[in-house]
């Protein structure tokens, strides 16, 4: 009897055997992406921030460059001092200090005196991250801690927004009763450095989500949260001050927050339901603060409040194992 296949079916089988098994079985854990490291994630965030950086430099020219450089240098210097003092390896290479500096720079009004930006960056890294033990342990989003500190210390400077080069308006669209949607989309409005151009933020943000450097549930949750509460504005404030739902979504820091701030994997919840609640909470609180509070913008406060709730959300939304007990006792 020969080994040569005699029927077409046997020929197919022999070809399959040569090509390898149909079903491969391996033991877990199944790492589908071996390069999914902190460093790769941070690089993806940096790439995602490129369009925002470009828009900031385009609209605010030298002021933007000065602000970004100040914040990044101060953040890295603070990180260096703290790691040096604790005799730990310098954590510059994971890129998180760089991103904290960048996000802070984008969330500050252009033309803020450089020493204030530097104070913000130092507080962001020191109080926001290093006192908890560095990256991975911080409870709050470091950039938002730095910004909140500046907001408490220099309220007047923090709520004066310079107009982009070549534009005429001076007040942020949130306070001035809204800008046209096209202007908001391209970014030719007054506002914090990196929050003006909706188009560029969405471009960079989509890259971030596609690379899974940020969870889309957080972004979607926040945008839905804003859209849910925004209609209240229509009857809560007189017509000159109220914004439409789309204006709420496109103006201020909502988009920057939804794509780049709430997606911080350290200070957001670990579970999927927790992430939905977190995103919805940030979005809804943002609009409530915008409409009813003294502050024109609420993203930063909303993020900090929900950051504080994150440990509780993690605790309450833990999935129950199949067949497991509802409670430990």
């Amino acid at each position: 009897m020969s080994d040569q296949p005699t029927t077409p079916a046997e020929a197919l089988l022999a070809a399959d055997a040569a090509a390898g098994p149909l079903l491969e079985t391996t033991t877990g854990p199944h790492l589908w992406e071996r390069a999914f490291t902190t460093r790769r994630m941070m690089i993806d965030v940096l790439i995602g921030l490129l369009p925002v950086t470009a828009a900031a430099v385009w609209f605010f020219r030298a002021a933007a460059v000065c602000q970004i450089v100040t914040c990044v240098v101060a953040a890295l210097a603070a990180e260096y001092v703290f790691t040096f003092a604790r005799r730990k390896p310098f954590s510059l290479l994971d890129g998180s200090g760089l991103i904290t500096g960048l996000i802070l720079a984008f969330s500050l009004p252009p033309g803020l005196p450089p020493y204030m930006s530097a104070i913000g960056a130092i507080v962001a890294v020191a109080l926001g991250k290093m006192i908890f033990g560095g990256l991975g342990y911080n409870i709050f989003n470091p950039a938002m801690v730095g910004r909140a500190f500046l907001m408490a210390c220099f309220t007047a400077e923090m709520t004066t927004w310079a107009a982009p080069v070549g534009a005429t308006t001076g007040a942020t669209p949130l306070a001035a009763g809204g800008a046209s949607l096209l202007k908001l989309f391209e970014g030719n409005v007054a506002g914090s450095l990196g929050e003006t151009s909706a188009a560029m933020i969405i471009l960079g943000g989509l890259w971030l989500l596609l690379r899974k450097a940020g969870d889309w549930r957080l972004t979607a949750g926040m945008l839905i949260g804003v859209a849910l509460v925004a209609p209240v504005d229509h009857w809560a404030r007189e017509s000159g001050h109220s914004l439409t739902v789309l204006q709420h979504l496109l103006s201020g820091a909502v988009l920057l927050g939804a794509f780049f701030i709430v997606t911080d994997p350290v200070s957001s919840p670990l579970t999927k339901p927790g992430r939905w609640i977190f995103g919805l909470g940030v979005g809804m609180l943002t609009v409530v603060i915008r409409i009813f509070g003294n502050n024109p913008e609420g993203v930063m406060f909303a993020v900090l409040v929900m950051n504080a709730m994150t440990p509780l959300l993690n605790r309450w939304t833990q999935p129950r194992p199949v067949g497991g007990h509802a409670k430990k006792e």
Partner: peptide
């Protein structure tokens, strides 16, 4: 990995400070 000098009441007060800044947003 909280620095040794900050463990206990120190870090708690610092967190309280950050929380207070967050709750500032509700003013008004």
């Amino acid at each position: 990995d909280v620095p040794k000098a900050l463990r206990g009441p120190a870090i708690t007060l610092m967190i309280a400070a950050i929380l207070a800044m967050a709750f500032m947003g509700f003013a008004g």
